[in-house]
Design a protein around this nucleic acid. Structure first.
Length: 282
DNA sequence: CCGCTGGCCTGCGAGC
DNA sequence: TGCTCGCAGGCCAGCG
C-alpha cells in the first residue's frame, strides 16, 4: 500500500510516542502464524522501560531509534499501517505488533492485512546501515532540495541506460520512495512515455523527470497520501489521504486524458501496471 | 556485481 | 449461492 509519502505521514504521526516509556512491545498471537515473527518475542522483551528517541525514514523503510543500542527496522509492505487504539477498544483484525506505554492510555498497533510488512530487531545503528536494502538505497525522493545533480549522474549508470524509464523508477536504489502510483503520476507530469529507454531521454526530459518526481511525492505528502480501493491508507490517527483526487493517470485506463482527451492506457511492467497518456507522453 | 522470477500473504470483485 | 481467477500501492532469496 504505502509509498514514500504515506510512510512519511505515518512517521510524523508516530512522533506522539517519542520519549514515552514503553510498557511492552508484543507480537500478537496471530503474528505467530508467520515464520518471520515466530519465536521472536524474546527479542522484544528487552524493550521494556526503554523509549523511542526518534524514527528515521529511509525510502519506504522506518528505522526506530531507542535510548539504547538496538534499532528496529519496520516496513509497511503493501497493507501495513500503525493505528492508535484505545485501551478498551478491540485490536484491528490483522494486528501483528502491539506497543503499550506507561504514560499513554492508547496503545499503538501494527495492522498488516497482507502480511508483507517487516518489524525486525537489529543489534545497532551500524548493523542496520550494513543491511543490504538500507545500504544500497538511493536518493530520497522526498529530499529537499531534490538532489538533481545526483539524479542525473545516477541515470547515466551503465546498468540503467538501456532500460525503460518506467521500469527503473521502482528501483529503490535509484530514487527511494517511489511506488507504483507515483511512478505513473511523475511520468505523466514530465510528459515521458514509460517505455522510453533511459539512453533516449533528452537532458531536458531528465531534469523535468527529477522535478516531477519531487513535486509528485511532495504533493502526495501534503495530501496525506492516496487512499482508495478496499484497504485505504490511513495515518495512525485514522485520517485518510486525498491525493487520489488529483491523480491524472493512475487507475484511469479507458478514461480520457484531462489535457488532450486521449484514452489513458495501462501496460504491464514486471507484473505491475503503468498508466499513461499515449499522446501527452511521447 | 547484475536483472529477473517466483514466493510471501489476504481479501475482494468479476465471471461462470 | 459458491467457486475460481485475477488483481492489489513491495520486498527479497535464489538463480543464471
Amino acid at each position: 500500500m504505502p509509498e514514500g509519502p504515506e510512510v512519511e505521514c505515518t512517521r510524523l504521526s508516530l512522533q506522539a510516542i517519542f520519549n514515552k516509556k514503553i510498557k511492552q512491545i508484543q507480537f500478537t498471537n496471530l503474528s505467530q502464524k508467520y515464520k518471520k515473527y515466530r519465536f521472536k518475542q524474546k527479542e522484544l522483551d528487552i524493550f521494556e522501560d526503554k523509549k523511542i528517541k526518534t524514527i528515521e525514514r529511509k525510502g519506504k523503510f522506518l528505522m526506530w531509534i531507542f535510548n539504547f543500542e538496538k534499532v528496529i527496522l519496520n516496513h509497511l509492505g503493501m497493507s501495513g499501517k500503525w493505528i492508535f487504539v484505545e485501551e478498551n477498544e478491540e485490536n484491528p483484525s490483522h494486528a501483528k505488533v502491539i506497543i503499550k506505554f506507561h504514560e499513554l492510555k492508547q496503545k499503538v498497533v501494527f495492522d498488516d492485512v497482507r502480511n508483507f510488512g517487516q518489524f525486525r530487531v537489529f543489534e545497532s545503528y551500524e548493523t542496520i546501515l550494513r543491511h543490504d536494502p538500507i545500504r544500497k538505497i538511493g536518493i530520497d525522493g522526498l529530499a529537499l532540495p531534490f538532489p538533481i545533480d545526483t539524479f542525473l549522474t545516477e541515470l547515466k549508470r551503465s546498468n540503467y541506460i538501456n532500460r525503460e524509464i518506467g521500469d527503473i523508477l521502482l528501483d529503490q536504489k535509484l530514487v527511494a520512495g517511489i511506488g507504483n502510483i507515483y511512478r505513473s503520476e511523475a511520468l505523466f507530469q514530465a510528459k515521458i512515455n514509460p517505455t522510453k529507454l533511459v539512453e533516449n531521454l533528452s537532458p531536458n526530459e531528465r531534469k523535468k523527470l527529477g522535478h516531477a518526481i519531487s513535486d509528485t511525492l511532495h504533493r502526495a505528502l501534503e495530501s496525506q497520501g492516496s487512499s482508495f480501493n478496499i484497504q485505504p491508507f490511513q495515518t495512525p490517527f485514522r485520517e485518510e489521504g486525498s491525493a487520489q483526487q488529483w491523480h491524472k493517470v493512475y487507475g484511469k485506463q479507458d478514461q480520457l486524458c484531462q489535457v488532450c482527451e486521449t484514452e489513458i492506457v495501462a501496460i504491464k511492467n514486471k507484473g505491475r501496471r503503468i498508466f499513461f497518456c499515449p499522446k501527452c507522453q511521447k
